[in-house]
Structure formats: C-alpha cells, structure tokens
Design a protein around this nucleic acid. Structure first.
Length: 487
RNA sequence: GCGGGUGUAGCUCAGUUGGUUGAGCAUCAGCCUUCCAAGCUGAGGGUCGCGAGUUCGAAUCUCGUCGCCCGCUCCA
C-alpha cells in the first residue's frame, strides 16, 4: 500500500460518514476531526473491546473515570509543567529544526564553553554533570529571548545536518499543555490545564480505588478518555491530533516485579491488536533505547504498526517505577500508599503503564482493512473489518423494491437489530447495494427474494468471499452469532 | 513555527492567451424488476477555501490569510 492510500482513506471516511473535518463550514480547524455515524460505531466497538479485554474479563483490574480538569498542582507534581515543553531553534540556512538541548549535546566542548562564557560572563555556576550543564544552558538560552539566536551563532553552534555554523533563530518555548481558566474571571489564581494524559487521574485516586475495591497487589486501574496536547506538529490524518482519546491501564506491582509485568503487558497488548484482525506482520513490539525514554520511565516497549507513512507507535508500555506516586506523596497532603500484609508495612507500589491511543487504533483498523480488488474487470473497494468491529453487522435487501419483499425485509432487519446493528437498503440494483456495504465494511448481507415468499429462506452473503448461502429466516441470529465468533 | 506542494459540486478531477464554471461517479424522485456497482426519464447541489489588489472584466495574474499533504521536532 503506497503513501497515497491515506488520502484514499480520508476520502472514503468522508464519503461514507466515518470522519469529517472539524468545523468544516468555517474553513476547518487544524488537525481536529469529527466522527460521523459509521465512525462513532466503529470507535465505540473498539473501546468496548478494550474495556472487555482489560477490565471486564479480569478480576485484578478495575475501571474509573476521572475529570478532565484537575488541580494544577497535579501537573506540577507529575513533572508536566516543568518537563512537558521543549525549547526549539530553527536553522534559517538549512531549514532544519532542533530541540535546543539535543543540539547542544552534540556540540564540541569549546563551543559549549564559549556559550557558557557568553551567558555567565566571569562567574559560571557549578555544574553537577555534563548533562546538568546542558540543562542549565538550555534554560538560560531560552530565557534570553531576543538575543538567544545570535548567541548560538556567535558561539559557533554547528548544524549537525550541514556541519556548518547555523543561522539560528531565537529559541522558542512550546508548552504542550492547554491552559484554561476556572471561574468567570481570568485572574492567575484560576489557571487550570486540560489533562495531557489520563494517567494522573488514576495516580491521584490510587488510594481511593484500592481501598474501596479491596484490591491487593498486583492489580490495575484502567481508564479511557480525552486528553489534550498542544503538539508542535500534527498530521497524518487521525494519527497526531491535539485532542485525542486514550485507553490507559496503570498496573500496580511490587517494585521487584516490574520487569516481569512489563513483559507480560507488552505481549498482552500486542496480542490484543492482533485480535482485532490486524495483519500480524504489520504489528511489532519495539524496545525503547535509553535515549528515547521519558523522564519518568526506566524501560519501555512500543506497539507499532506499519502505516503507509512508516512504522509508528500505537501504544507505549512503560515501567514508571514508583515515580508518579512518589511525586504526589512529596507534593500532596494525603499520601498514596499501600499496606502490604506480607511485610506488615506501608509501601509505595511501582507501576507498569499501558497507554494506547483510541484514534490511532481506529486509524490502524481502517488502514489495515482497506482493500481494492478487481471483480469482473471492475474495481471493488472494501473494508475488511473484523465483524465484531464493523459499524453495520448485517444489511438486509429486498431483491425487488416492491410489495411483500420490502415488508419481509423490514421485519428481518428488525430481527437483526435485536442483537446486532442492522441496515436496510432498497435503492438500486442488488449488486450496487452489495458494493455500498463493502465500502462501509459490513460483513454480512441478507437478501429477500422470490423464494423467500415460498419457503421462508433468504440468502446470506459474505463480504470477503462474496459467496452466498441459503438459510432459514429462523436461523438468522444463530447464523450471525456463529459467523462472528468464528472470526 | 520554517521550507515545499495543494485547494473548483458529497467524491475524483477538467477548465485554453483573463470573457456567464463543466464531466464522471454519488444523492433524490419516478419507470424497470434483475443476486454482485455501468438500463431509462427527470431533479437538486458550486459566492471556484477566504479577503484584498490589478483589470472594462479574475477560477485563471499579484499579495495576504486559512485548511490539507510532505519534511524538520515531539508523542498516544
């Protein structure tokens, strides 16, 4: 599948009612998308699959649902206020952009020294380490504002891409958290943030949930919901957006067991994606290198999918140690701890996190399902969605759009709807109606014909094979059940 | 944010040196009655992304702006 196929999927999504661009009538809002009538069904089914797999089917995981707005101190404790931003600089000559700290790390010692002298003149502070040195330089350069760029240039900071001294812009700070105000007036005391991850809602409720659910280590708390990040660069359709939905599991364990559980959940999560019918060869687990790890994490696996635009992350499974609970214990009045009966003392549990993007999973399912086939010299576009995920499970057609066949079809679609999502289509030739449903990803089509009127049988047609079988109308629900469970 | 590309009907695209925007598909109504999109008749749908400028006249030329795509960076 080539890179163009994302465009084809965007087009199909709009044409069939999966995804529309947000605020389209006002010219659109950058990288925000709305789910249409088919999209919302697919998304709900995807989320239900996750909840069923992570929460409902397990006795050691419970769910919760925290508010999007939280006390601002949550984000100070979590490190997001401090760390969730990156000063960036651009080289106007090469048009390349760098994170300032990464850029400085790669410079020669004399360049760093020259910068240090320029910033601190004659009394530089003590640097605990080389890393600390870079952090402090980055901070000061960022604070310099108007003169930062020329300072970089004068100190001879080179562009790793060209090897030449860069024509640098002033460093600019991007805070990735959306700020808002609580209360009718916008004074500074009312600043709040839209959460950049759902995880913190779980951490600050750890003790509440643990005590009320009477769970013992190891156990998990799961949540799904919207999160917001002011991404510098968005794109690839639904892949990177500023408003997105997460499915997160925080699994609390004894500190010495994190490695074991990290392996366990990494494999569980990879298998889950496979269970959605996604091509296994296009899924992989990739361990993070040391330099890729987030500030809170000591080990991490990504579940990745091979998109037309390359291997990209669907989900991160991370060992966060005791970082989060420690942070809240240091900042908050109320302590988050666990009484371990074996050791007869209070401990701070470590956590293994699995954090998946709903919209990314949605995009993956669509991209993976998209097919163009040649049938009798004609192109057939279909979505080979897993039947359990398809927005419409079964469409019903009267072969002729008249009289008793239509009445019968209306009765049958009602029957289908007792358990599955059904849709009746009376318009156009039967072939055209099958193809419409192929494009929507509907796995089964039931057709009422002349024979139905004589012996109460109908044909059921399979989307993928296009083969039909004649069945009794009494067995429709049984047929659908067994066909779905067989996939 | 910077660089490159792009924007005409729901979708895919035409549109000449500047002169009243077209096609195919889709949609809707009717006819036809047929198990894999192409039968017949008719209808609806566009301030050519938006705003200025040049011009007698702009989809077309210029500038600005917004959205989308690719790259740089970051992440779910």
């Amino acid at each position: 599948m080539d890179i163009k196929s994302i465009d084809k999927i965007v087009s199909l999504c709009k044409r069939r009612g999966f995804i529309f661009q947000s605020s389209e009538v006002y010219g659109g809002l950058a990288s925000t998308w709305d789910y249409g009538h088919l999209g919302v069904e697919l998304k709900r089914k995807l989320k239900n699959e996750w909840w069923q797999n992570i929460v409902t089917s397990r006795d050691n995981v419970v769910g919760m649902d925290a508010a999007i707005l939280m006390h601002p101190k949550v984000w100070e404790a979590s490190g997001h206020v401090e760390n969730f931003n990156d000063p960036l600089v651009d080289n106007k000559d090469t048009k390349k952009r760098y994170r300032l700290d990464h850029l400085l790390e790669g410079q020669k010692p004399e360049v760093v020294e020259s910068l240090t002298n320029a910033i601190f003149k004659d009394n530089p502070p003590e640097f605990a380490s080389e890393e600390d040195h870079i952090v402090i330089l980055t901070q000061h350069l960022n604070d310099l504002g108007e003169t930062g760029g020329s300072l970089l240039k004068d100190s001879g900071v080179r562009d790793p891409h060209s090897g030449a001294v860069g024509n640098w812009t002033n460093p600019r700070q991007f805070n990735l958290m959306f700020q808002t105000h609580i209360g009718p007036t916008q004074d500074s005391s009312s600043i709040a943030y839209l959460r950049p991850e759902t995880a913190q809602g779980i951490f600050v409720n750890f003790a509440n949930v643990q005590i009320t659910s009477r769970q013992k280590l190891p156990f998990g708390i799961a949540q799904m919901g919207k999160s917001f990040r002011n991404e510098i660069t968005t794109g690839n359709f639904l892949f990177r957006t500023r408003e997105f939905e997460q499915m997160e599991l925080e699994f609390f364990v004894h500190l010495e067991d994190t490695k074991k559980w990290l392996e366990y959940w990494s494999n569980e999560r990879l298998e889950w994606f496979k269970s959605l019918g996604i091509t296994p060869e296009k899924l992989r687990l990739r361990a993070h290198g040391g330099d890729e790890l987030a500030h809170y994490s000591s080990a991490c696996y990504d579940v990745e999918y091979q998109f037309p635009f390359g291997w990209s992350e669907l989900e991160g499974i991370a060992d966060r140690g005791t970082f989060d609970l420690d942070q809240h214990n240091a900042h908050a009045d109320k302590k988050q701890s666990y009484f371990d009966p074996q050791q007869n003392k209070h401990i701070v549990p470590a956590v293994v996190e699995s954090s998946a993007g709903v919209d990314r999973a949605f995009l993956t399912v669509l991209v993976d399902a998209y097919r163009e086939e040649e049938v009798n010299g004609e192109k057939r576009v279909l979505l080979k969605l897993a039947p359990k995920l398809a927005p419409i499970t079964c469409a019903v057609f009267p072969l002729m759009n008249k009289g008793e066949q239509v009445e019968k079809a209306e009765l049958l679609v009602k029957e289908v709807r007792r358990e599955f999502s059904g849709f009746i289509d009376t318009g156009g030739s039967i072939g055209k109606r099958y193809r419409r449903q192929d494009e929507a990803g509907t796995p089964y089509g039931i057709t009422v014909d002349h024979q139905t009127m004589e012996d109460d049988t109908v044909t059921i047609r399979d989307r993928d094979t296009m083969e039909q079988e004649r069945i009794s109308i009494d067995s429709i629900l049984d047929q659908l059940r067994s066909r779905i469970s067989a996939t």
